[in-house]
Simulated assay, not measured.
Amino acid sequence: MKPLDERDWPRLLRAGSRVFIGGGAAVPQGLVASMLTHADRFVDLEIVHIHGLGPTPWIEPRYEQVIRTNSFFLTPTLREAVERGQADYTPCAMSEVPALFQTGRMPIDVALVQVTPPDESGLCSLGVSVDVTRAAVKNARLVIAQINPKMPRTVGDSLIPAKDIDFFLKLTAPLPEAEVAEIDERQERIGRYAAQLIDDGATLQVGLGNTPEAVIRALKKHRQLGIHSGMFNDALMD
Score class of each variant (00 low, 15 high):
G22H: 15
H38E: 13
A33Y: 01
P118Q: 13
G209D: 09
L225A: 03
L123T: 00
T77L: 15
V110E: 07
Q86Y: 03
G23M: 11
T77M: 13
T90I: 14
M94K: 12
H49F: 12
M94S: 13
G230F: 11
I160D: 07
K150F: 03
G156I: 05
L197P: 00
R134A: 10
G54S: 09
V27C: 14
G16M: 13
A33S: 12
N139Y: 07
K138R: 12
I227S: 03
M237F: 06
N210W: 01
V32F: 02
K138C: 04
P55H: 05
N233E: 06
C92V: 03
P28R: 12
R105P: 00
A93N: 10
G207V: 09
T69Q: 14
P149W: 11
P98M: 10
P107V: 09
E80C: 08
V143Y: 05
E83L: 14
A214E: 11
S229I: 10
I47F: 13
T56W: 04
D40I: 01
R223Q: 14
M94A: 13
I108N: 04
H51L: 15
P117Y: 09
L236K: 04
E96A: 15
T203L: 02
R7G: 01
H228Y: 03
L45Y: 01
E177Y: 01
A162W: 03
G122T: 02
L12K: 08
V43M: 05
I144R: 10
E177G: 02
M151V: 15
T103E: 14
P117K: 13
L142Y: 01
R105A: 14
G226S: 06
C124M: 11
R186Q: 08
V32S: 02
L171W: 02
R18Q: 08
A26L: 11
A218Y: 03
I21M: 06
V128K: 12
K163N: 12
G52I: 00
R186D: 03
S229C: 11
I216E: 05
Q205G: 15
P174V: 13
H228F: 09
T172N: 12
P212V: 10
F72A: 07
I47T: 08
P152S: 06
V180G: 03
R68Q: 13
R84V: 04
A194G: 02
L197Q: 12
P161Q: 10
S229H: 08
A178R: 15
A25W: 02
L236C: 13
P28W: 07
D234R: 15
E179Q: 12
G122P: 01
H222T: 02
